[in-house]
């Protein structure tokens, strides 16, 4: 039966094609959702993590850098590009405590009336 292996190959190709097509649609939908999520202004702030330098936090949360420097109580003469983890370590405080401080300072700053 010379037709059999051919038929099997055809079905395998078809199955593979359908699977790949399904994946394509899946990724397309996921991409659309992630773009919509990104564009939503309510989601602009990225959750604070230790690897973030202060400048990055400033950019993500829309808060001036000086406010953050003060909030983090950066020691004088520190290298400008300090990550939150480095600052916590230099100050000898746990990272979570520093993150809470910074987030509280941001909330306070945001609550200030516009001058």
């Amino acid at each position: 039966m010379s037709g059999q292996p051919r038929r099997w190959r055809l079905w395998a190709l078809r199955a593979g094609f359908v699977l790949a097509l399904g994946l394509t649609l899946l990724f397309g939908v996921r991409l659309a959702i992630s773009i919509a999520f990104w564009a939503d202004p309510a989601h602009t702030d990225q959750a604070l993590e230790g690897w973030m330098p202060l400048g990055y936090v400033s950019q993500s949360w829309g808060v001036p850098r000086e406010v953050l420097v003060e909030a983090a109580r950066l020691p004088e003469g520190s290298r400008p590009r300090r990550t939150l983890a480095e600052i916590a370590q230099a100050r000898g405080v746990p990272l979570s405590a520093l993150l809470d401080e910074v987030e509280a300072a941001i909330t306070n700053w945001r609550a200030l009336p516009d001058e």
Binding site: F27, R30, L31, S34, I35, F37, W38, H43, T44, D45, Q46, A47, Y56, V57, S58, Q59, S60, W61, G62
Partner: peptide
């Protein structure tokens, strides 16, 4: 800019 996580997710899907 400051929305790296979201962009990274979008890029992964792309």
């Amino acid at each position: 800019g400051g929305q790296m996580e979201q962009i990274a997710a979008a890029l992964g899907n792309a």
